[in-house]
């Protein structure tokens, strides 16, 4: 149990692809604990992925239930081991920021609704359908597992304004 240092870009670990974590293993449990501790310690943070604390394993945690934007639709604390988005639909643009990229924000388009499959902390299989801010937060954290930062997905704000829907 420990609050870890949050890695800041250009730390090269943030641009690497993570390897699968051992489901139900002691190491995985320890990663989850540290992720939750670090996320909680960061106060307003709603998610944390293993590379952000220097571990290249496919583990991420998300909890938007304490955030104003996530109040309506959330599943509380999600501890995701080897998560995969198996379905995505709709689109939603939010201005994102990231603890690993301080002092920069940008508009990012994400799916509005997703279905994510993962192993839980205790090793059980879960399939969860999420929408809104929770869906955005999960997509942001899962990107970290593939070495992607929101900077890789920033869309042109002007293009968003004038693009027709449909």
């Amino acid at each position: 149990m420990a609050v870890r240092e949050v890695r800041i870009y250009p730390d090269p670990i943030l641009k690497q692809v993570c390897t699968p974590a051992e489901v139900g293993g002691a190491e995985t449990t320890a990663i989850i604990t540290d992720l939750v501790d670090t996320m909680v310690d960061a106060g307003h943070s709603v998610g944390m992925a293993a590379p952000q604390i220097g571990i290249l394993k496919r583990v991420a945690v998300v909890d938007v239930s304490h955030s104003k934007l996530g109040k309506k639709h959330n599943h509380g604390l999600l501890t995701m081991v080897n998560p995969e988005i198996i379905e995505a639909s709709g689109s939603k643009v939010m201005r994102e920021g990231c603890m690993s990229v301080p002092d920069y924000t940008g508009n990012v388009e994400r799916a509005r609704e997703i279905t994510v499959q993962f192993s839980d902390a205790d090793g059980s299989e879960r399939v969860v359908r999420c929408k809104g801010f929770e869906a955005v937060a999960i997509q942001h954290e899962l990107d970290h597992l593939d070495g992607l930062l929101f900077l890789d997905r920033v869309s042109n704000p002007k293009a968003d304004i004038f693009r027709r829907k449909g």
Binding site: S45, V46, R95, E96, G97, M99, V136, A137
Partner: peptide
């Protein structure tokens, strides 16, 4: 009007 306050993730 819509709020666009950045979300830190």
């Amino acid at each position: 009007v819509r709020t666009i306050t950045p979300v830190e993730l």
